[in-house]
């Protein structure tokens, strides 16, 4: 390679610095979850596991976590179906209006969150649909489709279509080809896209704020409610730390999948 040793060291130091900055706030929250203080003040005071024990018995964050997982799963399921269908239609066929459809798929993520949020809310209000966990999942699915679409269409562009044609020549029906040839080729792209879509839904708050009624709290909404309550802060820190730690599992799997998928 053409880089001098000092240049490599500079690049590596810079990368380490950036990762440190990325994690400093998260580390700070983790430290606070073990602190005896009931605020965000610097420096954190004391050490205790009491916050963690206390948080175990809190129903609020558990319900909110469940709501977030449920919404994420529902939105991801819809996005997996619609995103992969759109990927097939748009990468494998040429048809009139193709650009319009591809723009419509990409638009929810390209337009600012507040626009998507207000647009969906306007539609619900104009039609007179009551806000619920279903409207929330519909709203989340709408911006998750593009994530699955991107992953699957990138894969479809790489895998040769003649594998499916070979399968058809050998006498397999469309369903059999889909099950035995196409799906295995797409599996890792579907998993990676699905995980990313779930993550996007799980941490989303702007569209969520507009697409759900006041009683239904997802985890980000629960965080938003409780930051201003001093008594709840230790629990907030515990739940936040827990979520960050728990998210290493899917991220690890996502990475393994995408590593194994390099064709």
């Amino acid at each position: 390679m053409f880089l001098s040793r000092p240049a490599r060291i500079a690049l590596r130091s810079f990368t380490i610095l950036v990762i440190f900055v990325l994690y400093a706030p998260l580390g700070y929250v983790a430290r606070l979850s073990l602190s005896t203080a009931k605020n965000f003040a610097w420096p954190p005071q004391g050490w205790t596991l009491g916050n963690w024990q206390h948080a175990l018995h809190e129903p609020g964050p558990r319900t909110a976590l469940w709501h977030s997982v449920l919404t994420g799963l529902l939105a991801t399921a819809i996005a997996l179906v619609l995103g992969s269908l759109a990927a097939f239609a748009l990468t494998r066929h040429k048809f009139f209006g193709r650009n319009v459809v591809s723009l419509a798929v990409v638009l929810p993520i390209a337009l600012p969150g507040i626009v998507t949020a207000l647009a969906l809310r306007s539609a619900f209000d104009r039609i007179g649909i009551a806000l619920s966990s279903i409207t929330l999942a519909v709203a989340h699915a709408t911006f998750c489709v593009v994530i699955v679409y991107n992953n699957v269409s990138a894969r479809l562009r790489r895998v040769a279509r003649n594998l499916e044609e070979a399968s058809a020549d050998l006498g397999a029906g469309p369903i059999q080809t889909l099950r035995l040839v196409t799906f295995p080729l797409l599996r890792s792209a579907l998993l990676a896209g699905g995980l990313l879509a779930f993550a996007l839904s799980f941490d989303e708050i702007i569209v969520t704020t507009f697409a759900v009624d006041g009683g239904y709290r997802t985890l980000p909404l629960w965080f938003s409610d409780n930051f201003s309550r001093p008594n709840a802060l230790p629990t907030v820190n515990v739940v936040a730390t827990f979520v960050v730690l728990a998210s290493t599992i899917p991220v690890y799997f996502a990475q393994r999948i995408s590593d194994g998928a390099v064709a």
Binding site: L26, V29, W42, A199, D203, V236, V244
Partner: peptide
């Protein structure tokens, strides 16, 4: 992994951590 993981959790929590910092 280190760069993508912060996307998973705590957009708000990170905001509040920064508020304190």
């Amino acid at each position: 992994v280190a760069i993508t993981m912060p996307l998973w959790a705590g957009y708000l929590v990170k905001g509040y951590a920064w508020r304190s910092l």
